[in-house]
Structure formats: C-alpha cells, structure tokens
Amino acid sequence: MGPVISLRDAVSLAGRFPLLAGVTLDVAEGEVVHLRGPNGAGKSSLLRLCAGLVPIASGTAFVLGHDLRADRQSVRREVGLLGHASFLYDDLSVERNVRFAVRAARADLRGVDEALDRLGLGGRLRSTLVGSLSAGQRRRAALAVVVARRARRWLLDEPHAGLDAMGRTAVDELVRAASASGTTVVLASHELDRAGRLADRVVAVAGGRVVAAAEPSAPGVTAGPATPGAEGDDARQIAPSGEAEEDGRDVA
C-alpha cells in the first residue's frame, strides 16, 4: 500500500510569502509522525496543506490518493484537523457543535457521546456554550470533533497546548488508542518528550522544509533522508534534544 501522505518539493504561498518552501515527506498508513521545529518553521502550514486548506503552488502533494493540486476539497472529509483555532461556534453548546460536525461529515452520531465522555466533556459541560468554556475546555471540545468524526487520519497541531495534566494525559491516550486502531496521526508539537513518546517517527521542520527524520528512540542519531527521495540538504542531524539544525529562515 502506498503512503497516506506523499509530498514532493511541495511549495505553498500566502501571496508572495512562502508558507512551505519545498517539503518532501511520506507518511505511511497507521504511522504516528511527530513534526517538530521552531515557531514559524512551517509545521502548521504543513498540516493545513495535508488537510486541503492551503493551496500548493508547485511540487506534488497526494493525501489519501487525492491530488491536492487538482482537488483539495475531497480530502477534507477524510481527515480530522485540530488547528490553532477551534473551528467551533461560540453560541452553540459543546454537544451541538460536535453533532453539527459529525452530521456534516456524514459520520455516525453514536460517536458523539463516546467522544464527549473520552474528552471529559460529559455532564454539565456537554450543554455549555462554547463561548463560556475555558481555553483548555475549548481545546478538548475541538479534539472531541476530531474524535467523533471518526476520521482515519488525524492532523493535530499542538494538541497538548492549553491543557492541564489530566487533559494532556487524555490526549496521549487518545493518540495511542487511535494509533492502535490503525489511524494515521501527524502531530506538530513543542512537547518534545511527550510527543516523541507517542510517535513512530520524528520529522524536523525548519524554514518551510523537512530537514531531518529519525526514530524517536534514537536521540542524537544522524537521520537519514526524510523520504526515500530526499537527499542532500534535506538530510540533517537531529540533536539529542530532538531539535534539528535550522537553516535560520523562518517561514509561517
């Protein structure tokens, strides 16, 4: 079976500003990949590209067999994206928000209760307006949408951000359970240890490009190419801290 995500020299622009400067990356079915890199490295843009939200200017990008150059809409229903924004409506309750997303995705509504319970959003919080939630609760509600839609590919942007210890543990358990059931997960996180423990592979992003990839259990190793086709400048070293060498150029 081919990779779920296959990017070759993918470039994305916001106007004339580069979001991604030639990303080459493969993600296999069922794999958990941790994207790491400094702020502005392009991690969020990479996830948004894979979700079909960001257009590709050059290179190739296939997600779940969909050519993102030709059609970005088809892939959207098949992925669950947790972004910096919650994508929720303040004037709807948590449950109404999740039910709307599940119905829109034509998923099974029976997944709503389970998702809310797993994220600790049962009881009183279920009927609370999203606008009244704390930042952490809002984050959990956004994650509940991803879980309830039962997408088989998750794109999680800083999933631990703003969560308390219990919430962070819940996220870890969700990712592990998803991975065990064969869900492909790509997560961008500055929580190097925590995210590294969840991942099958660590990919370092800097300057809008993938600069290194390695097994998370091999700190300090010299990483091979990020993908079979990536060579030369794309193959750098992941330091023991997990941070790759950067080329010093920030990209959104």
């Binding site: 079909g52 959207r76 229903r77 994206l81 972004g83 924004a85 994508f87 929720l88 409506y89 995705a105």
Partner: peptide, 17 residues
C-alpha cells in the same frame, strides 16, 4: 461574522459540506 470567529470558516471548509 459567526463564521469568522475562531476559524469557523475553516471548519466549514473542512466539514465536507
């Protein structure tokens, strides 16, 4: 305006509607 808050318009695009 309700679609402009907290990325709801992106949510609408991602919804598959």
């Amino acid at each position: 305006a309700i679609e402009a808050l907290d990325g709801a318009s992106d949510g609408l695009k991602l919804s598959g509607l």
